[in-house]
Simulated assay, not measured.
Amino acid sequence: MQRITSFFRFCRGRAKLKRRAAAMGFMNHHHQTAISSGQEGIKTVGVDNHNLCDFSSNSDLCICIVTWNMNGKVSYEDLAELVGSSRKFDLLVVGLQEVPRDNILRLLQAALEETHIVLGKAIMQSLQLYVFGPKNSDLLVKVELQVDKHSVGGFGGLIRRKKGAVAIRINYKGFRMVFITCHLSAHASKVEERNCQCKHISHSLFSKNWNPYAKPAHITVWLGDLNYRIQGIDTHPARNLIQKDLHGTLTSNDQLLQEAERGHIFNGYCEGTLTFKPTYKYNVGSSKYDTSYKVRVPAWTDRILFKIEDAKKINATLRFYESMDDIYSSDHKPVKAHLCLKLNKLLSA
């Protein structure tokens, strides 16, 4: 615990030095190196919704992925809306942050009772991850699954806002997959702290039982409230652009994409185009952005990213990447993705 605390003190100290250097007109050396070395950053991929997935012939595995910061409130109706009524997917992955003390799994199981059952769960107080598979499938007896969690400190209040990540590693239908849901530090100024948390989580998860001879995951998926913000623009100009459906112009101000482009985080990951409006912060019970005295700049805090270990062996098609604007009980809108995977015939098990 002392080592982890020292690590994040280092992160905070480094962030202060970086801001001071920026104010004096100096560029961070790591930033220069990352740009000159040609880092991949996050690859933005389009959504292929013209050729609708028929759930059988086009793909070997279909995954529905949902992330939602619940803000400590829930209803069965919201969760039923979250998982949807059309279940054209093999696996359903649900990552939740700021989960209330209610039995969320019981509510999810009730909503999915006719089609899917829980394969695995990873829980760290208000941070929770669930993977569901098809009911009555012969494949379920062959599922290999491990879970892990990693705290980065920082929680409080009645809803226990735990920060960190929980993860599930699963082998299903010949695909080795890792799903990670996280809740990182808040506030626009904490960019360097979030970067440090991402790196530390990546290095720490499943490290206790690390096998140097184990094959790497075919695909890794990060989902959650990453808390990266929009910067370099004030709230009212940003809201005017969103109101005019010009929010796509704000992606150049998105901290997550900026930091990835600089080579600091998520190198080689993919994300769908941000065609939906920023998912935070809304007035609870409405689709109006924050009208409190803080009048926060809207931001895409809630994201789903994925990385294919070898694109020559696995073809990944993103069929859907959207926010769920009809859910009003939180100050965040959920985000949902539909990802289809197809194995190359030359890929060995």
Rank of each mutant, 00 (worst) to 15 (best):
L92N: 01
E77C: 12
M24D: 14
L339F: 07
L318G: 02
R239Q: 08
G38H: 12
G95L: 02
N240I: 07
G153S: 11
F26I: 10
S287N: 15
G232S: 07
A122I: 04
E114A: 11
Q231S: 15
V143D: 00
L91D: 03
K173M: 15
K199I: 05
K162I: 14
H247R: 01
G174D: 05
G268D: 00
F276S: 15
R160V: 14
T279M: 02
Q146G: 00
G156K: 09
H30P: 02
A110E: 13
K149D: 07
A23V: 00
A316M: 10
K312L: 15
N209W: 13
P216I: 08
L108V: 06
A111Y: 06
K43R: 10
L184M: 03
W300S: 00
N253T: 09
K342A: 09
G153I: 13
Y280A: 06
Y76K: 09
H236R: 08
S6F: 02
E81T: 14
T251M: 03
L241Q: 14
N283S: 13
N315E: 14
D138E: 04
C196S: 07
S85G: 03
P237R: 02
G13E: 10
E81P: 00
G41D: 05
H247T: 03
H236Q: 09
V99Q: 10
G224T: 06
H236I: 06
I63G: 06
I117V: 11
K18D: 13
T235S: 10
T291K: 06
N253V: 07
A238W: 00
T220N: 03
S202N: 07
A111S: 14
D102S: 13
W68C: 00
G174P: 06
K43N: 11
I308Q: 01
F306T: 06
R229K: 12
Y282K: 00
T249A: 07
I42K: 03
W210D: 03
R160P: 03
L61I: 13
M24C: 13
A34Y: 07
R87N: 10
G120T: 11
S59L: 15
D290S: 00
